[in-house]
Design a binder for these strands. Sequence first.
DNA 1: CGGAATCCGGGTGGATACTG
DNA 2: CAGTATCCACCCGGATTCCG
Lengths: 139, 139
Amino acid sequence: MPTAQACTPTLPGFTCGLDATLRVIAGKWKPLILYFVAQGGPTRYGALRRAVRDVSDKMLIQQLKELEADGLVKRTDYKEIPPRVDYSLTPLGRSLAEALVPLCSWGTENMAEVTRVFAERDALNSQRPEPSGQSTRIE
Amino acid sequence: MPTAQACTPTLPGFTCGLDATLRVIAGKWKPLILYFVAQGGPTRYGALRRAVRDVSDKMLIQQLKELEADGLVKRTDYKEIPPRVDYSLTPLGRSLAEALVPLCSWGTENMAEVTRVFAERDALNSQRPEPSGQSTRIE
DNA sequence: CGGAATCCGGGTGGATACTG
DNA sequence: CAGTATCCACCCGGATTCCG
């Protein structure tokens, strides 16, 4: 019912609202970055790096730059020594982060289910001629 | 700010609910697929291909298979000639699609903004001959 | 501390051709 | 109509190293 018909083409280039959103948050870490900054307020680079586990400097910086270029996050350099920089959300970024909340809730509620499904999939993978453990497939 | 701290680690493997969700919908087309199927009910392959613009057969099938393996969509083959197959959402998939609604709304509301930002970015890219590295933008 | 630059392997994903 | 199969360019993203 309210399955939202908000997906009506309005501007050229995007097929629908979801399409537009995806172009902005496409990227392995962007949603997590947005979400963590939304929760923590202005967040220092190091803190962000620790929060978004397994992200490398290169990727974190890259995604942050794109988010900044897209007007979702704001970078503040305090020009101090040692360096201090923090990242905060713009109003636009804040509104997008709000839209991510349901996704987070969904994950929390269905984490057990997701874990199970992934375990099954990994079990199938390990039956294949695939030596060594780690299966960081994803994305 | 009710910025939801639903992002509390609960199960090993995932840092938070959002992390879990992202592992499931990571993939260029999955959110769009979920959303279109959610809107249209059981959707035929061809219809989906037309709905998700610019997707190739290969990618569409691949993503559909993963969604199916993850228990989000259900494939129905009517074994007819000519072939007829449709895809529908499982309860799990339906709940996830619901969680996508805010993202779609956000895109619709901020499409003008997004379009503008992207235009600026593209403008900058085309201005730079960039001596140290070929940056032939995007497709 | 907060990056930037470079190298590099593997996966992603497009194009095309073919099948039932 | 609903896929499958193959080739392959490209870029994502990790590791490493260096800089202010």
